[in-house]
Design a protein around this nucleic acid. Structure first.
Lengths: 338, 338
DNA sequence: CTCTGAGATGTTCACGCTAGCATCACAAAC
DNA sequence: GTTTGTGATGCTAGCGTGAACATCTCAGAG
C-alpha cells in the first residue's frame, strides 16, 4: 500500500514482522517448518508492505529458474497461439512458466531471441522448426538444458523433437487428390524460403504427383497482407491464367478460405468443377459456408507433448527423444471422396 | 561448442583469455575503454567457449532489468497480437524487451500473472484494461515503475493510460445506425462480465438508442468456440425468434463475419433488409465477399503509444499520462450511409 | 531433574555479475 | 628526468535471495 521508491526486500518484511529474513523467505515459499503464529505474522507484514519477492535474487541464489523459453515464428496466424495454449495448459500444473519469443521467420532474429532467452538461464527451450543457424544450434547444445524442436519431424533434432512430417502431409494430400480424379492442379502458398514446413509439404506434394506423371500446373506465392484477401486474389489470378485448373492446394487454411469464398461468389461448382484443400485445420473453418478440405496439424497436441517432455526432463525423468504425430486428413465439402 | 554440464561464467572466459573478469564484462557489454587487442581476444574466447552472459546475475548486480511486462487477456483473437506488434516495433529500437503474460480475462489470473511478472522487477508494465483487483492495483502502485493501462479510456488509471472510449464507440455506432433509419436492432456479443470493454460499448450503444426511444430488440451472448461459427448460429437463432430484426450489432468482427456469411447464404439483402456492424477493424474483413461495417480499435497505435510512454519514462523523461485515441467508423457495405 | 529429539528459527556464505574506485603503463609536456 | 594525464585494466564490495548448517526451545521420556 505504501508507495516506496526504494524497492522492498526480505529485510523490510523481516523487520516489520520481527523475525529473521530466512524465516520470511521460508514462509513465502512454503518451505520448511514455520509455526502458524509466525507464518501469520509474516504474511500480514508482507501484505501490508505490498512486498513482492525478487525472483532475480532468488534465481541466482538457488540456481533455478522456472522459465521455459518458447520460440516461435509468429503470433499473428492462428497456428502458434494454439501450440502455446497446449504448452501453457501442461505447464500450469507444474511450477514452470512459458516465456514467448517471436522470430518473424528470420534465422538471425531467431538466433538473437535464443541468445536473449538463454541469458536468463531457463529450464528448457521449446523452439519451432528444425532449421537453425549454426550458432543457434551450438548455443542449444552448450546450454545443457532440455531442448524440444517442434512442428516438424523431417530432419535431425538437436535434442528432442515433436511434430508431424510435412513431407508426408504433402504426399497424403496429393494422393487423395489424385484418387479423386483431379488432374490440373495448382499450388498457392507463402513465399517458402522462410517457411521450411510449407516447403516440405510442397516437396512431398509434387513428389507424389510426379509419381503419377503429373506436374503442378500453376503456382503462386505471397507474403504479407491479409491472408484471406490474398487467397482471393491469388485464386483469381491463377484461374485467369489457367481457366482449366481443377484443383487448388493452398499452403494454409486462411488463403484457402479466401479462395473458397471467391469461387462460391463466382458460382463455380466446388468441388465438382474445382476442388480445394488447405492445411492446418483451423477452427475458423467451422464458420465457413462450406467445409474446406484440410489436414489437422496437431498443433495443440504438439504443444502439450513438448511441454510434457520439458517437464519430465526438468524432474530428471527420461523421456522420448522424438515424437511424430500423424495428421488426419479431413475431406470437408471441397475434395471429392473416392 | 564444448558441451559443459557446469555452466560457464565470466571467470571461464577470463581464464581463457588471460584478462580479468571485469575486462571481459566490459567487452561483452561494450562499456568503458578496452584496447582493440584485448577486445578481440576476449570475444574469441567467449565465442569458442559458447559463453552466454547470465542476465540474472547481471540484473541483480546492476539493479536494472530491461524487460517490460505486457499483460493481456488473450492471444487467440486477432486484437492483442496486433497491440503486441505495436509494442515490439517501438521497443526494438530501445534496449527494452517485451514479455507477455496472458490472463484469459480472469481477474484472479491477472493478479497472479502480474505478481509473477513484478517479481522479475521489470522496467515497466503495459496492462490491458482499467479494471483490476484491489490487490493488483496496490501492487502496481507499490512497484514504483511506469504502468500504462491500455485499450480503454473510460475510467481511472493507476498511472498512465492509452486507449479509446468504448462507451463513445458504442454511442457513435448507435447514432450511425439510427441515422440510417434502422429500428429493430439486435446485439450479439460475448458474455460480458468478463469483457469490460464490450460491456462499455454495449452501454454506450443502448444509451444512445434510448435517447431516441429505442430499445435493443434482441440480444444474445456466447462464450468459447469458433467465433465465426458462433456468429452464424447466434444470427440464425435471433432471426428465428424475431424475423423482423433490421440491424445486428456484433461485439466483434469475427462473429459479425459469421453473421454476414450466414445472411448472404440465405439470400437476405444486406444492408437493405438487415444491416450489420462489428467492432475492431480486423484485417480479416478485407477478404470477405462484402465489407462489414466496423470501427477501428486503433490496436497497433495503442501498442506503439504505450511502448513510447514506457520508453520515455525509463529514460527519465516526463510524458503524457493519458492518451485517448479516436476510432474511425467504417461503413463498409453493410451499413447504409445516410 | 536431566536427557533427547524434533520443530522452529537464525547465521553464514555463495550465486555471477557490475559499480565505483584504485592502480598501472605509457606518452606527451615540461 | 620528472610530472601529468589518459586510456587500460584490476580489485572489492555488494545486489537480494536460498542452501546448508548451527542453534535454540520445549515437550515428553527416563
Amino acid at each position: 500500500m505504501t508507495q516506496n521508491n526504494r524497492s522492498l526486500t526480505l529485510r523490510d518484511v523481516s523487520e516489520a514482522s520481527g523475525v529473521s529474513e530466512m524465516t520470511v523467505s521460508r514462509v513465502l515459499r512454503n518451505r520448511g517448518d514455520v509455526s502458524a503464529t509466525t507464518r501469520e505474522k509474516v504474511l500480514t507484514a508482507a501484505k501490508d508492505l505490498g512486498y513482492v519477492p525478487n525472483k532475480i535474487a532468488g534465481a541466482l541464489a538457488s540456481q533455478r529458474v522456472n522459465l521455459v523459453a518458447v520460440i516461435i515464428p509468429s503470433l499473428s496466424n492462428m497456428v502458434f497461439p494454439e501450440v502455446l495454449a497446449g504448452v501453457s495448459q501442461v505447464l500450469e500444473d507444474t511450477e514452470l512458466q512459458p516465456v514467448v519469443g517471436v522470430t518473424d521467420y528470420l534465422p538471425e532474429k531467431e538466433e538473437k531471441v535464443l541468445y536473449e532467452m538463454l541469458s536468463w538461464r531457463p529450464s528448457g527451450v521449446i523452439i519451432a522448426g528444425l532449421e537453425h543457424t549454426e550458432a543457434a544450434r551450438a548455443m542449444m547444445n552448450a546450454s545443457g538444458i532440455p531442448v524440444v524442436e517442434i512442428m516438424d519431424a523431417d530432419g535431425e533434432a538437436v535434442d528432442a523433437m515433436v511434430g508431424i512430417s510435412h513431407r508426408r502431409a504433402g504426399r497424403v494430400m496429393a494422393a487423395s487428390i489424385l484418387e479423386a480424379g483431379y488432374k490440373k492442379i495448382a499450388f498457392l502458398g507463402t513465399k517458402m524460403p522462410l517457411d521450411h514446413r510449407a516447403r516440405k509439404r510442397f516437396e512431398g506434394f509434387t513428389e507424389t504427383l510426379a509419381k503419377s506423371g503429373i506436374e503442378v500446373a500453376e503456382r503462386e506465392f505471397y507474403s504479407g497482407g491479409s491472408a484471406l484477401a490474398k487467397g482471393r486474389e491469388m485464386t483469381e489470378a491463377v484461374l485467369k491464367r489457367s481457366p482449366d485448373i481443377d484443383f487448388i492446394y493452398y499452403s494454409n487454411d486462411m488463403i484457402g478460405a479466401g479462395g473458397l469464398l471467391y469461387l462460391m461468389e463466382k458460382g463455380i461448382d466446388v468441388p465438382g468443377q474445382i476442388g480445394l484443400a488447405g492445411f492446418n485445420g483451423v477452427e475458423l473453418l467451422q464458420g465457413l459456408p462450406r467445409q474446406l478440405a484440410t489436414m489437422d496439424a496437431c498443433r495443440r497436441e504438439i504443444g502439450v507433448k513438448a511441454a510434457e517432455i520439458i517437464a519430465s526432463r526438468v524432474n530428471g525423468d527420461d523421456t522420448d527423444k522424438s515424437v511424430t504425430l500423424t495428421p488426419k486428413i479431413s475431406f470437408g465439402d471441397t475434395l471429392l471422396r473416392k
